[in-house]
Design a protein around this nucleic acid. Sequence first.
DNA 1: CATCGGTTTAGACTGCCGGTCTAAATCTGT
DNA 2: ACAGATTTAGACCGGCAGTCTAAACCGATG
Lengths: 214, 214
Amino acid sequence: MSCESETRKRFSALSDTDRAHWLDAAEAEFCVHGFEKASFNRILVAAKESKGRTYHYFSGKDEMFRATLERRAALAGAIDETAALNAGDEAGFWTEVARICESLTAAFLADAAFADLIRILHREAAARRSFAVPLNALERRTGALVRAGQSLGAVRDDLPLGLLVTVTLDLAVSIDRWFADNTDKVPEAEAAVLSSRAFGLLAAPLLPHSEFPV
Amino acid sequence: MSCESETRKRFSALSDTDRAHWLDAAEAEFCVHGFEKASFNRILVAAKESKGRTYHYFSGKDEMFRATLERRAALAGAIDETAALNAGDEAGFWTEVARICESLTAAFLADAAFADLIRILHREAAARRSFAVPLNALERRTGALVRAGQSLGAVRDDLPLGLLVTVTLDLAVSIDRWFADNTDKVPEAEAAVLSSRAFGLLAAPLLPHSEFPV
DNA sequence: CATCGGTTTAGACTGCCGGTCTAAATCTGT
DNA sequence: ACAGATTTAGACCGGCAGTCTAAACCGATG
């Protein structure tokens, strides 16, 4: 008796094209409707698959969303924070963090569907639940990064680590969402400089001595 | 032909106790289940009202959520930012902003149901839609505050106003949520100082010259 | 008091949802 | 060829938000 989900194993045993059969339909549905409002029924109709067969390979909507995102997430595995973790001084640390932000924005711009799914993931609690494991990993990695910064004196340590991590990740999402919602209002020429300046905002709450300047 | 919703007028013509009949049930349901997963049917059963009568006073789930929140929101009308808007210098501005944060945290601590509803409002897009008008007002007021800060040199103005507003509001929500989720992990003695220090984070991204310190 | 028009009310009903279940079809090993 | 397990189709379930019909109620007018 494996305690790992049967459906997941069965699904990953399928060929790439078979998997794509569902995942393409699912991705289209999720990108348009988000997680909660996406219809599992519509997905399987679009994929021309029966309910029985579909539930044979997916335990439910959660797992289908997870699989959909996971296919795209291979891309994001490219993120590599070791340089930042091993930075020798404050300036080097922030340079590497900036580099990570740049490669993330690049990944989002290069793959709109991936960016959409990630945004859904953050916005909808139900979606977040279905991707809990990778999200926890992300928090752990961010936590390690923050601690590395703290040991260099680059990051404040007068607040709980968890709070700093949460705030940083939420801030990143907030900035990303603003640009996603306002592409039209940002002149293309300024977009790059604005966006890098904006991601500089990520550092602000982490710097030592950033209290209300009273 | 009024273009204002009939149901809303009918509902507001009811007595306080009649309104409470639905709103108490609705508040309980929404606080437990959030917006999407709350069941309109369960609410009307709990309120011992028929479907016909309920739909006579509410156009749907959206409006019921709006009404539920609005009843509590009377409390929040107390927030008054004129002092900050009229501050004479940078220090005065930030002092007043800090005061606003304090009175907000106090309001949240004093009224758990209100805090829950506000958190739902921010988390679920569907809920946000039903409360769009007051939310836009909040954004406008925050925008005015940011501009006031800019005119005093207290706030950077090298980024779009809308971005600064979004980031600030999201950051506030993020901090609030962390404390709501981690009350148990924060020693009571430190809670107050931590929380005020944390809300100091709000100012950080707004300060001039807060780029990546490369 | 009777009756008539509009308003209010109860609750049956619709279409869709995510998910379960049964029974047939299809594989696999002998 | 056939038995047993796996895979598949799609009917079915309870619950959802929201609609609709027909009865009950109510106030004005004869």
